[in-house]
């Protein structure tokens, strides 16, 4: 999907082109619609949503739903808003992303530049681990977290995410380093550089793009995770997604749609920002994760 890719040689007549533009714009509306609905309705008072329609702009603009979602809305039994859970998510994401990226880089380095008998089997097993349905590990994981004494903690969640991220990060770095010239590693060996010196001085400085891709991929996946959060967190260590779901689906009291929408945007904001800032890398990660081994 690089911008430099050549355009197609197919030529189209101008009437067709107008129709193509119309279709494309129509689809753009379809994809933007839910975001638009969330945005406009998050700044309306509740009455206006109930009596008006969801697509119209707010007549009375208010940021109260945002404040409420952030700091006072009822999550479970506590009127804390989403703020503490947002922090939980950050505390969960940062160490997990850092650890899995670092390990992935080292693994990719070993698997491509220091090959040994059986390395392909090791890689295949790591690769397959990317695709397992996590339901299959929920029961033993819950038990192990209990044994380690980190059940229901943010650290525990972080560990879980780091472990199940290794497969993907290793895949990313292995594919990237596969294309990295082995002669450079050999030259550095002759220059007397050690295993870690070669990694740090020769490979790492050239790894910028793949680090960005991996960090974005891991960040997005871990931030957006729901299953591990809902399975392993206690009510104080819930990540943002689980807290949002609790807010939206709690059956008590009035349904504050505007607060729900504001909360949903808050939960989406970090990954959306990452996407807007570095969409190119985001797409590259998606592709790398989707296709090939």
């Amino acid at each position: 999907m690089s911008a430099a890719a050549p355009d197609t040689a197919v030529r189209t007549a101008s009437l067709t082109r107008i129709l193509i533009y119309c279709a494309l714009i129509l689809f753009a509306f379809y994809y933007l619609l839910p975001l638009y609905v969330m945005l406009v309705n998050s700044v309306k008072p509740l009455d206006e949503i109930r009596q008006g329609d969801m697509l119209s702009l707010p007549q009375q603009f208010t940021l109260d739903p945002w404040f409420s979602a952030w700091s006072t809305a009822q999550i479970g039994v506590q009127p804390t808003g989403l703020k503490p859970y947002f922090l939980n998510s950050i505390l969960m994401v940062v160490p997990a992303v850092a650890a899995s990226t670092l390990l992935g880089a080292l693994n990719g380095y070993v698997l491509t530049k220091w090959r040994f008998p059986g390395d392909n089997l090791v890689f295949t097993l790591m690769l397959l681990s990317c695709f397992i349905p996590f339901q299959i590990v929920l029961i033993p994981m819950a038990k192990v977290l209990g044994l380690l004494g980190i059940a229901g903690t943010t650290w525990g969640l972080s560990l879980v995410h780091a472990i199940y991220g290794i497969g993907f990060t290793t895949l990313f770095f292995r594919n990237y380093y596969e294309a990295f010239p082995t002669e450079l590693v050999r030259a550095a060996m002759i220059d007397g550089a050690s295993f870690f010196q070669i990694f740090r001085r020769i490979l790492l400085p050239s790894s910028g793009p793949i680090i960005v891709v991996t960090v974005i991929w891991q960040f997005t996946n871990i931030w957006n995770d729901f299953l591990f959060g809902v399975s392993f967190a206690d009510s104080y260590s819930l990540p943002m997604t689980v807290a949002l779901n609790n807010l939206v689906s709690s059956s008590t009291g009035v349904k504050e749609y505007n607060v729900h929408f504001a909360g949903a945007i808050l939960a989406a904001l970090p990954t959306l920002i990452v996407y807007v800032v570095s969409g190119r890398y985001f797409v590259r990660g998606l592709m790398a994760g989707a296709v090939k081994g």
Partner: peptide
């Protein structure tokens, strides 16, 4: 880029 929870809510 969105969580399925956000999509679901919307």
């Amino acid at each position: 880029a969105l969580s399925f929870i956000v999509t679901g809510t919307a």
